[in-house]
C-alpha cells in the first residue's frame, strides 16, 4: 500500500506496554514544511507517539508514511535511512555527559557523516552561535550548563545534521517563562529558516501559540481534535476547549 501525500501520515497506530494501551489507533496527518504541535495531558502517550514516529519504539499495529514511503517496519525504515534526516530535541536535552558541548553538537556529523573532528568543531561553534551560545561554551561539559543552555545545545545538535524533520519533546519543560519564550522563539525561527517539518509535543499553551501552525490533541491514546492554531480558542470541541482553558470540569477525567 502506498500513499502519495507529502508529510507524515499515521493510520491506526497502536502501542501497548503490558496491559496498558498507550496509543489506541492514532490517525494523524502532519503537513510538510509546517510546525505541528501535539497537545495532551500528562501521561496520555505524547512522548510514546513521537518516539513511535521516530522509530525508537516499534509500533504494535497501524501504518506510518514519510512523504509517501511507508516506514512502519524497521526494514522499511532502514530503506529510507539515506533519504531523510531526523533531528530531535529531548525533554531533558539528553546530552552525552561524558562529551564536551562541541562534541555533542557535532556528534551526528562525526559519527553519522564521517566529518573530521577539526572541521566538526568549527561547524559546532557555528551551530552554537545560531542558538545564541558563544564559542566559549564549546569546551564545557553538559553538567556545567544551566537547563536553558542545555536545551539550546540540544537544539544545536538536532539541527547540525540539517534534518528534514525536527521533533521536539516538551521543549520548555522545567524552564522559567522567559527562557521558555527564548526557546520557543529559537524553535520558530529555526523551523522557518530551515523550512523543515516540525513535530512538537507539549502541554504548555504559550509554546503552542508561539510555535504551532497546526495542533492535534491526544487523549486516551486517540487524536480527539486537530486543526489550525487559529481555531483552538474558538473550537467547540469539548476536549480542546477544556484543555486550552485549563478547566477541571469537562470530558477529560482529572481524578488522581
Amino acid at each position: 500500500m502506498a500513499n502519495s501525500d507529502k508529510g507524515i501520515i499515521l493510520r491506526g497506530v497502536s502501542k501497548r506496554f503490558g496491559d496498558k494501551a498507550v496509543l489506541d489507533g492514532v490517525d494523524l496527518d502532519i503537513p510538510i514544511g509546517k510546525s505541528t504541535v501535539i497537545v495532551g495531558c500528562s501521561g496520555t502517550g505524547k512522548s510514546v507517539l513521537i518516539k513511535s514516529i521516530m522509530g525508537i519504539f516499534p509500533i504494535d499495529s497501524g501504518q506510518i508514511w514519510f512523504d509517501g514511503a511507508e516506514i512502519t517496519s524497521p526494514k522499511q525504515r532502514r530503506s529510507i535511512k539515506d533519504r531523510f534526516k531526523f533531528g530531535m530535541l529531548f525533554q531533558g536535552a539528553a546530552l552525552f555527559d561524558s562529551q564536551t558541548v562541541w562534541e555533542n553538537v557535532s556528534f551526528g556529523l562525526v559519527n553519522g557523516q564521517g566529518m573530521k573532528r577539526g572541521e566538526a568543531r568549527e561547524a559546532a561553534v557555528e551551530y552554537l552561535r545560531q542558538v545564541g551560545l558563544s564559542a566559549e561554551t564549546a569546551d564545557l561539559l553538559p553538567a556545567q550548563l544551566s537547563g536553558g543552555m542545555q536545551k539550546r545545545v540540544g537544539l544545536a545538535r538536532a539541527i547540525a545534521t540539517r534534518p528534514d524533520y525536527l521533533f521536539f519533546d516538551e521543549p520548555t519543560t522545567g524552564l522559567d517563562p522567559i527562557m521558555s519564550d527564548v526557546i520557543n522563539d529559537l524553535i520558530r525561527s529555526t523551523v522557518t529558516s530551515m523550512g523543515v517539518t516540525a513535530v512538537s509535543i507539549t502541554h504548555d499553551m504559550a509554546s503552542v501559540r508561539k510555535i504551532a501552525d497546526t495542533v492535534a490533541m491526544l487523549h486516551q491514546g486517540k487524536i480527539v481534535w486537530s486543526g489550525s492554531v487559529k481555531q483552538i480558542d474558538s473550537s467547540t470541541n469539548s476536549y480542546i476547549s477544556q484543555f486550552v482553558n485549563g478547566r477541571a470540569q469537562g470530558p477529560i477525567n482529572t481524578d488522581v
Partner: peptide
Amino acid sequence: QIDALQTLS
C-alpha cells in the same frame, strides 16, 4: 541518551 544516539544515526 540511548534514544538520542538512535536519532543521530
